[in-house]
């Protein structure tokens, strides 16, 4: 147990913080502690979690990507246009188009990084500006409201009224989110490729000496994030029922904060899907709770920012110091 806590310190402390916040909120508000609200939270967080697990893979491989959120916007727009060309399409064709476009944009990043040895933050800040600039230039900032019906209709996979009068709803975004989370978890923990990604992020030179294909690692990591960005983009369009070119602008930093809060390390080799999901949920729960408490929506972000700042400060002041029973590691 001790070793489990030690190796999963971030996940445990996040869970503890979530439990504390949830307890406070359920005492302070009438509606927080209900299944209905819990499922609402999942619905709201679905898109961010999809982005987050994608970004996690890139962070594990030792990279960073600033461009994925605007890439998702580009995908949304192009998919909407492409669906128009093929006469409407459906969920399968939509996901295929969005996914492949996303992979393509992700692979462009990987290409720049691998072929020309450009550091990932430099490459993706460039592509961030290129994607966003071109998107705004060609769309002139005009939104698309005329989306196919299948895309804008809410898909409720399961619903049930609870005794307390709230509704449990599982919607399509949640299903897609769960599939993305499980797929990412499979990729990074159960396949040799995933473990190679960890190894590459942990010690690139060591990985190279083992004959790991470095280029493939970059393309897989950024391609996977591209795939998640594409899928997340389409789901976001479905959720919002419109395509606004700058709707996702700035989302990259929020997601980055959540993923790193979840224990992923800038620099590679570390991070888990569980921590990543908990990181996103912590932020959503806080916002949701503040909402229910009747706090002004303008104050949300301020409080969320303060919470992240405190969380980082605490999580970096060494978990051992806060939990004396864990004891010191074997390191000298």
């Amino acid at each position: 147990m001790r070793s489990l806590i030690r190796t999963h310190a971030t996940e445990f402390s996040l869970l503890a913080v979530i439990v504390i916040i949830s307890t406070v909120l359920s005492v302070a508000t009438a509606n927080f502690f209900s299944l209905g609200n819990a499922f609402d939270l999942l619905n709201i967080s679905a898109v961010n979690i999809i982005f987050a697990v994608g970004l996690l893979v890139v962070l594990i491989a030792g990279g960073i990507d600033i461009s994925f959120a605007v890439a998702a916007s580009v995908v949304q727009y192009c998919t909407a246009i492409a669906l128009g060309w093929i006469g409407g399409g459906g969920w399968i064709s939509g996901l295929l188009i969005a996914g492949s476009l996303g992979v393509l944009l992700g692979c462009l990043n990987a290409f720049l990084i691998h072929r020309f040895r450009i550091i990932s933050i430099v490459a993706t800040i460039s592509t961030f500006n290129i994607y966003f600039g071109l998107l705004m230039f060609f769309t002139r900032g005009v939104s698309i409201y005329d989306l196919p019906e299948w895309l804008t209709d809410r898909v409720i996979l399961f619903e049930q009224e609870m005794p307390d009068g709230t509704w449990i709803e599982i919607t399509l975004p949640v299903l897609v989110m769960v599939i993305c989370v499980v797929a990412t978890w499979m990729l990074i923990t159960r396949t040799t490729i995933g473990r190679q990604l960890y190894a590459f992020g942990d010690n690139p030179e060591g990985a190279r000496r083992f004959g790991i294909n470095i280029g493939a690692m970059q393309f897989i990591a950024f391609g996977w994030l591209g795939l998640m960005a594409g899928i997340g983009g389409l789901i976001q369009a479905h959720y919002a029922q419109e395509v606004v070119p700058n709707a996702l602008y700035g989302r990259e930093l929020d997601v980055l904060a959540a993923v790193v809060l979840g224990g992923a390390r800038l620099g590679g080799g570390k991070g888990s899907v569980l921590g990543c999901v908990l990181g996103v949920l912590l932020i959503s729960i806080t916002q949701n709770g503040l909402n229910l408490m009747g706090v002004s929506p303008f104050a949300f972000k301020m409080i969320v920012g303060a919470i992240i700042l405190v969380a980082i400060t605490l999580s970096n002041t060494r978990i051992e110091r806060l939990l004396p029973f864990v004891g010191r590691g074997a390191g000298r």
Partner: peptide
């Protein structure tokens, strides 16, 4: 040493053998 500090001892030892080069399940 060319080891991977964040990965488990088992993964470090059996890296070539199990995590090898071909994609498959671990």
């Amino acid at each position: 040493l060319a080891l991977f500090p964040e990965m488990s001892v088992a993964e470090n030892i059996a890296f070539h053998e199990v995590l090898g080069r071909r994609p498959r399940l671990v």
